[in-house]
């Protein structure tokens, strides 16, 4: 029985998956629209003004950045707005806790779910990038576990904010103060080398930087330099943030 109880987070994950499945197509298309607008708008518009960036056409450079940034956004939105609805507004978490589901299962289920949803939308973007011939890499499948890991990072960070949030308005601060600057500092739109040295140092502390550093070479058909270091940074952030989110959830819900 204890072995079975240990797997209850899967029931939480499946609950969210069932909701998603009902709206899967509009959800994926909706998640696709925003990054595509950026990628084509900036990629072709701005790209036509630029010679090559980092040795490739700008749109090829931008593809990896867009993929990572939109994976980040997808995980963040799910772990913030959607999880907050379930925790605070609909009291779905309370209903689960009345059943033999532990809070660890609820938070783990939400964590892995938001990363899964990020994987879905990241995969859709990857498919478009591939279909349009923006990548000829033979290493595309390596990108999938990496965007899942990136999803775990931002899902866990989002859950920290969710467990602290008094209302939806709170999330605006998170986006304005963290997510938006991170998008600009992590090498999504331009190479890190364009940043002044102090900001380059800051960029090294941001999870999105490490994801871009892994995904961009893979899309360009190269091997990323020091891949284990980047993976280790992402995994450490993901696990640490999850542990913090869990503690905060316990404080909020099991008082």
């Amino acid at each position: 029985m204890n072995a079975l109880l240990a797997l209850r987070w899967i029931a939480v994950w499946r609950r969210n998956f069932l909701v998603w499945r009902k709206l899967a197509l509009p959800s994926v298309l909706g998640n696709l629209a925003d990054p595509m607008i950026y990628m084509f708008g900036l990629g072709y518009g701005l790209g036509s003004l630029l010679p090559q960036v980092a040795g490739v056409p700008y749109i090829s450079f931008l593809a990896a950045g867009t993929l990572c940034a939109s994976t980040m956004n997808s995980a963040s939105f799910e772990a913030l707005y959607s999880a907050f609805s379930r925790m605070h507004v609909q009291k779905t978490w309370d209903a689960m806790l009345n059943a033999p589901v532990a809070l660890e299962d609820v938070v783990a289920g939400e964590w892995i779910w938001a990363a899964t949803k990020a994987l879905f939308s990241g995969s859709a973007i990857l498919l478009v990038v591939w279909a349009l011939g923006l990548t000829e890499s033979s290493q595309l499948l390596w990108v999938l576990p990496l965007i899942f890991l990136l999803g775990l990072c931002f899902s866990a960070m989002g859950l920290i904010v969710t467990t602290l949030a008094p209302s939806y308005d709170f999330f605006m601060f998170y986006f304005t103060l963290l997510i938006t600057p991170m998008t600009l500092l992590s090498g999504v739109f331009f190479p890190l080398s364009q940043l002044p040295p102090p900001l380059q140092a800051v960029a090294q502390a941001l999870p999105l930087t490490h994801a871009v550093a892994l995904v961009r070479p893979l899309l360009l058909g190269e091997l990323p330099p020091s891949p284990l270091l980047h993976v280790a940074v992402l995994a450490t952030i993901a696990l640490t943030a999850f542990a913090i989110a869990l503690k905060l959830a316990q404080r909020r819900l099991l008082a």
Binding site: L4, L5, R8, A11, V12, R14, R15, L18, V19, K22, Q90, K91, T92, D94, A95, M96, N98, A99, P100, V101
Partner: peptide
């Protein structure tokens, strides 16, 4: 079995789906 003070049924699901999803929480 618990009936909480405030309804926390799942608004995204039908009546039957609510029961099915809840059953999974019990394994």
């Amino acid at each position: 079995g618990v009936v909480p003070q405030f309804d926390n049924l799942d608004p995204d699901f039908t009546a039957a789906e609510n029961l099915l999803v809840y059953a999974r929480y019990f394994g």
